[in-house]
Design a protein around this nucleic acid. Sequence first.
DNA 1: CTCCAGTATCTAGCGCCGCTAGAGATTGAG
DNA 2: CTCAATCTCTAGCGGCGCTAGATACTGGAG
Lengths: 193, 193
Amino acid sequence: MSIQARRERERVGRERLIIRAARELAEAEGWEAVTTRRLAERVEYSQPVLYSHFKGKDAIMAAVAVEGFADLAAEMRAARTSASDPEQALADVAAAYAMFAERRPALYDAMFNQAVSLPFATPEAPAALHAGFDELRQVLRPIAGNDNEDVLAEVLWSGLHGLVTLMRGGRLPREQHEQRLALLLRRFAGPTG
Amino acid sequence: MSIQARRERERVGRERLIIRAARELAEAEGWEAVTTRRLAERVEYSQPVLYSHFKGKDAIMAAVAVEGFADLAAEMRAARTSASDPEQALADVAAAYAMFAERRPALYDAMFNQAVSLPFATPEAPAALHAGFDELRQVLRPIAGNDNEDVLAEVLWSGLHGLVTLMRGGRLPREQHEQRLALLLRRFAGPTG
DNA sequence: CTCCAGTATCTAGCGCCGCTAGAGATTGAG
DNA sequence: CTCAATCTCTAGCGGCGCTAGATACTGGAG
């Protein structure tokens, strides 16, 4: 009984090790540098071991992405709860989102540009994902007006996502980032009309 | 003299052929299906010929992307010039942008998700790129208010880009797309506050 | 204590990728 | 007709994700 328990514990530990190694390697050198061979070498197991834990490389990326969603949700929550008033909360949460994308580009990539196999806009989506979306919804509640909160949150999310991905891809100059973010929020938080 | 001219003509023709084949293959099966081997087979030349025209696969994708920018700019221009009033023009251009991304996902990918080697927010950027950005700027002019037109255009572009990429990646449900687009424009075009 | 079954892990290899070196064919000038 | 320059091809390199089959190991039964 306890033998199987120990094995299971070891198994879980190794799985965590793989996810951590993948995340570190991706953050250090980008996802194109994360190959199953390098990953196996890093965790000091042979390549096929990875496939006894994950269906393939995509599944490993998805696991890293789930971690990322939890981190992002936590950072947005911290920004929201420590703000002095609702307007400031919106600005802080948006800034936290942008900074997250900036500081953890590989993680952000896994979450939003790759790993399509995760369920997203459904109840089956990972809890961390719902948590992150909830942060957006809560910070928007005071300015929702007559608009549906969910749709409003989706649109704000889109705006932030567009800003950070276009900037990261070199499509937008970094210099005006703050200006763009401020303008988005100003137009967004303004009177509904 | 005319011999070299003919050779140059053939060279240009073959280059166009390669770009067209790459685009067709990408639109039919996605970029991951566009391999140098398949591409070479399709244009009925050997693989190394591709490398006498383009530095690598990325350069081929960049060439396809430039074509895409021209197409997108033309579609936005058509939408803008055939609209009855400024507000309608904004809505039509935004819809045209979203429809382009929806109808030509592979092209959109090459333009905005990959091929980082193109110059973007600089004078050296391809003319088609400037043309597209100009469409956004022009359609926004009537509602710019005190905001900088360039920054405003960048933010609208970000919003649209976010909407279409998140939807295409399965992060946003397709059903509310129209609603989201309308909300973005409403908040965006509303009084500056 | 021995043996065996079942599990865990590894070595080796498949078919593919982007890319390139060097051979061979082709071409136009003298 | 010859030759040098140019163009194009065949063949191959190292690396990719992934997997089949061999091998080592472990814990329980007799």
